[in-house]
Design a binder for these strands. Structure first.
Length: 683
DNA sequence: TTGAAACTAAACATCC
DNA sequence: TGGATGTTTAGTTTCA
């Protein structure tokens, strides 16, 4: 009875998540049928797994997914019920746990509050632990879903093979159609999997708070179980223990080294569901005894992996032990086999497994990215390797690193997260500043010829909005961008402030500094014109003056041109990469147009700034200078260009819009900018 | 090494 | 009077 009611509760959770976000688009097609199948699947779940398998042939991927979710959730529910009852009767927990240690992690059941009462949970964990555990297990749910997807894929493959066998007696056409249908199903399943996972991550499972984006690991998605958060999971633990014969098995579960541990032993991408290895009475999987012997670093001088720096490294313990013997004694007394230790081990197991999965996923992603970017896969960089600031670059401030490390599947995917693999692409003339490094880096290069501000902003809007990363643009270009984004091309100082804070998480702090800089720039640069308006003083942009700021040095310099072109390509690549990551790696944003340097035109600026920033303002010969050029064209254009600033001014008595020559075949947006930039405003 | 540009910080003035 | 706004200067950093 209770099982059934809980089943309904659980059933609604994943489907609700399915319906949110991008996945709904694809799931909609099967949505109606999926809903119907959910009911059927729910009933079928009680029968047997084989039932679901049999009906797979008729079920759509979405239905299949839902059906399997129901099955798993039901198993999870039963598991938790048994576990809960065993917790209330500690005397017999071992046998029950071992018997009920089925494939479903607690995380799945956590979706249904009815399944395990808070009191029952609190018997094991303290409130902070519960909270942390909840977060972690939400992340684990993600993993669980991934497993379901994999199962379904396997089943589809299986069916495909079966159909192929059976199809030998069938007409060729029928077989081809069936195969095609299966392949489409498979493809759809894969897409569903990706989008569903991304959705889950984007929703509550992965939350990025701008104010917290200052640390690399803080932005680490919860799916990755940030190691720095884990101690919280263990704090407050101090229950007495009883001697346990297998306490030794608990070694290797060093929480503090979970990350390194996870990366030290290469975990196969395909791992069993989290609790599938709960074969031992204490919940310790036999396959998961990640000793740190091989990965023993400087922190493990003693022979015991749980002992280091004279203290117990049991998660949350940190008890000082003078020597190994004392530690062993402490281990046997304080961390013996009991419910608490068992629970801790489970959590640690999940942590490790989650990290393994995360590592595998990121590894695959990196390989795919490198393959896509035609990079040499022969120089793999370890994931555990900290971000290496580009040699010679002092620009990697803490801010940069903070956002830079925010890792997989999180909302924040700063460009520097790919700094290692992408570094080879960085053109020699392009400074590291253009790598969106944070800190007070001078950004002339990226600002002026490498990184079109509007396009980059457009592509990385979410990134800059959420990540505490300093935008790689000068104050002047940012101010100009803010002003040009408005319909009437004018902003009050306060509105400029608001634009900064709205667009960039970085400018939500240190307000005194950057606001002063904004005012300073407004006053300093002639390109910013203060106009008395009805509503007070507003600031406008004098494009002529702005373009005059441009350094004329680039003219005809092959090196500069080359660098600039490379920088443009890189900038485009980098920007698109950021955007794609910031958008949770949606394939759409990885469209060829984004990454293919050959189609860099699509990345090129949508506004003056792009023209002005990435391409020198105007050709002195007055020839048309298309604001969007593919790199070769771009190169040619730049080489032709001469005396950009002065000549431009001499030749253009008209509206002060140097780069946006009306004769150019620029996009409407550019034209609008040109035309709408009122000359009277600038005077 | 040098000059230019950008950034930061600060002082000061004006206005509401 | 205090805060916002605007101007100016000085020192520093980065890069070509």
């Amino acid at each position: 009875m209770m099982v059934e009611s809980a089943s309904e509760t659980i059933r609604s959770a994943p489907s609700g998540q399915n319906g949110v976000g991008s996945i709904s688009g694809q799931a909609d097609g099967a949505g109606g049928g999926g809903a119907g199948a959910a009911g059927t699947g729910g009933g079928g779940a009680g029968r047997d797994v084989a039932t679901g398998t049999d009906s797979n042939g008729e079920m759509s991927p979405a239905e299949l997914l839902h059906f399997q979710q129901q099955q798993a959730l039901q198993v999870a529910r039963q598991f938790l019920l048994q576990q809960a009852s065993s917790l209330s009767s500690p005397g017999s927990n071992d046998s029950k746990q071992s018997a009920s240690a089925v494939q479903v992690p607690v995380s799945v059941a956590m979706m249904s509050p009815q399944m395990l009462t808070p009191q029952q949970m609190q018997q094991i964990l303290s409130p902070p632990q519960l909270q942390a555990l909840l977060q972690q297990q939400q992340a684990l749910m993600l993993q669980q879903l991934q497993e379901y997807y994999k199962k379904q894929q396997e089943q589809l493959h299986l069916q495909l093979l079966t159909q192929q066998q059976a199809g030998k007696q069938q007409p060729k056409e029928a077989l081809g159609n069936k195969q095609l249908a299966f392949q489409q199903q498979l493809l759809q399943m894969q897409q569903l999997q990706q989008q569903h996972l991304l959705n889950l991550q984007r929703q509550g499972l992965v939350s990025l708070q701008p104010s917290q984006a200052s640390g690399p690991l803080q932005t680490l998605p919860q799916a990755a179980v940030c190691p720095t958060d884990l101690p919280q999971l263990w704090k407050g633990e101090g229950a007495p223990g009883q001697p346990a014969e297998d306490s030794v098995k608990q070694e290797g579960l060093d929480l503090t080294g979970s990350a390194t541990t996870a990366t030290s032993f290469a975990a196969p991408p395909k791992v069993s569901p989290p609790l599938s290895h709960h074969a031992l009475p204490n919940g310790q999987p036999t396959v998961l005894t990640p000793r740190r012997d091989s990965s023993s670093h400087e922190e493990t001088p003693a022979s015991h992996p749980l002992y280091g720096h004279g203290e117990c490294k049991w998660p949350g313990c940190e008890t000082l032990c003078e020597d190994l013997g004392q530690f062993i004694k402490h281990l046997n007394t304080e961390h013996a086999l009991d419910d608490r230790s068992t629970a801790q081990c489970r959590v640690q197991m999940q942590v490790v497994q989650q990290l393994e999965i995360q590592l595998a996923k990121e590894s695959e992603r990196l390989q795919a990215m490198m393959a896509h970017l035609h990079m040499r896969p022969s120089e793999p960089k370890p994931f555990s390797q900290p971000l290496n600031p580009v040699p010679g670059s002092s620009s990697f401030s803490k801010v940069t690193v903070s956002a830079a490390d925010s890792f997989p599947d999180g909302l924040v995917h700063p460009p520097t997260s790919a700094a290692a693999p992408v570094t080879p692409l960085r053109p020699p003339g392009l400074s590291s500043a253009s790598l969106h490094s944070g800190g007070p880096t001078r950004r002339r290069s990226s600002d002026k010829f490498c990184s079109p501000i509007s396009s980059e902003l457009a592509q990385n809007h979410e990134f800059y909005k959420n990540a505490d990363v300093r935008p790689p643009f000068t104050y002047a270009s940012l101010i100009r961008q803010a002003i040009l984004e408005t319909p009437d091309r004018q902003l009050t100082l306060n509105e400029i402030y608001n634009w900064f804070t709205r667009m960039f998480a970085y400018f939500r702090r240190n307000t005194a500094t950057w606001k002063n800089a904004v005012r300073h720039n407004l006053s300093l640069h002639k390109c910013f014109v203060r106009v008395e308006n009805v509503k007070g003083a507003v600031w406008t942009v004098d494009e002529r003056e702005y373009q005059k700021r441009r350094p004329p040095k680039m003219t005809g310099s092959p090196t500069l041109v080359k660098n600039m072109i490379s920088g443009l390509s890189y900038g485009a690549l980098n920007a698109s990469y950021q955007a794609a990551l910031a958008e949770s790696s949606f394939p759409l944003l990885n469209s060829p147009g984004m990454l293919n340097p050959g189609s860099a035109s699509s990345l090129l600026p949508l506004s003056h700034d792009d023209v002005g920033a990435s391409v020198e303002p105007l050709p002195s010969n007055g020839s048309s200078s298309p604001p969007r050029l593919s790199p070769p064209q771009y190169s040619h254009q730049v080489q032709v260009k001469e005396e950009p600033a002065e000549a431009e001014e001499d030749r253009r008595p008209g509206p002060p819009l140097g780069p946006s020559n009306p004769s150019t075949a620029g996009p409407p947006e550019d034209r609008d900018l040109e035309e709408e930039l009122p000359g009277e405003e600038l005077s």
